[in-house]
């Protein structure tokens, strides 16, 4: 295999090695445990998965099975006990480049306005001149329906709007891969549908990849190309569903009423039920 240079250029060009497209993220036999009172408690048993370019993959699993742990391991905040994580074909020490990370908590900095929060990543990386960073962030806020709120402090925004600011912060530096951990769990149904819709189309437009952890099976099925169901600890993959509902899912409400949709939802429910018993 040829050396693909740094991860950033590799991502942009979706590096080609021997003619095959290298997927942005490959996870091979990763395991991870926590040390509690001197004993290792295994959390992730043995987990392998691949996230391809332009693909949306949802992960569902029982509470406490290690979904957040998995995500933190993938983006280098924790290191795996065994196994390999390859970003664009390379193992990375520390944080991978060009990855967007977002949690259920919006984690906005209260002393920064919506705009300054959205700009945080650009500012830290120093990638763009201040004026350009501001323009890009403003445009991203506008695109997410926050026109006119750029100068508001987070404390004056609604929960849904704050989550949109957090999404703008995640998307504005144009990451190849998004790792989202129950990002919309705290929102009401209506805001959730709208923001899901926006996220999916921004991801698909930019041919980005998205790994979405969620408790909401309908959310998982309606957005993803693939749904991965995890087992209880020590976590393994219990089932994988390829969701054949077409990539162009413009009518989210209509989609949710289709028989195929309910079929997937019922089967995933059944999987999780077995796990819970």
């Amino acid at each position: 295999m040829t050396d693909v240079g740094n991860a950033k250029t590799a991502g942009a060009a979706s590096a080609v090695a021997g003619g095959a497209v290298v997927p942005p993220l490959v996870v091979e036999h990763v395991s991870k445990g926590y040390e509690v009172n001197g004993e290792i408690v295994p959390v992730i048993g043995d987990l392998s998965l691949t996230l391809r370019e332009g693909e949306i993959v949802s992960i569902v699993g029982p509470s406490g099975c290690g979904k957040t742990t998995l995500l933190n391991t993938l983006c280098g905040l924790l290191s795996p006990d065994s196994g390999r994580i390859r970003w664009h074909g390379r193992e990375v020490t520390g944080q991978p480049q060009n990855v967007g990370y977002m949690l259920q908590k919006d984690l906005l900095l209260p002393w920064r306005t919506a705009l300054d929060n959205a700009m945080l990543g650009l500012e830290i990386r120093g990638v763009a001149a201040a004026a350009e960073a501001e323009d890009r962030s403003r445009a991203m806020l506008d695109q997410l329906g926050l026109h006119g709120f750029a100068d508001h402090y987070p404390s004056t925004l609604s929960g849904g709007m704050r989550q949109r600011v957090a999404l703008a912060r995640t998307l504005v530096h144009e990451p190849d891969v998004l790792l989202l951990d129950e990002p919309f769990a705290a929102l009401d149904f209506q805001s959730k549908l709208l923001i899901e819709n926006d996220t999916a189309s921004l991801v698909r437009q930019g041919r980005r990849s998205l790994l979405l952890i969620t408790h909401d099976i309908e959310e998982a099925v309606s957005l993803a190309d693939r749904v991965i169901v995890l087992s209880k600890r020590p976590t393994r993959i219990k089932a994988v569903y390829d969701i054949a509902l077409g990539a162009e899912r413009t009518d989210m409400i209509g989609l949710r009423q289709s028989p195929e949709f309910s079929h997937y939802v019922r089967r995933i429910w059944a999987d999780l039920d077995v796990v819970l018993q």
């Binding site: 933190n72 983006c75 280098g76 944080q95 908590k105 984690l107 900095l109 945080l120 830290i124």
Partner: peptide, 14 residues
Amino acid sequence: VDPDQINLMRTLGA
């Protein structure tokens, strides 16, 4: 300071 907040900064490359 919220450790999640620190993690977020780190994923942003801080």
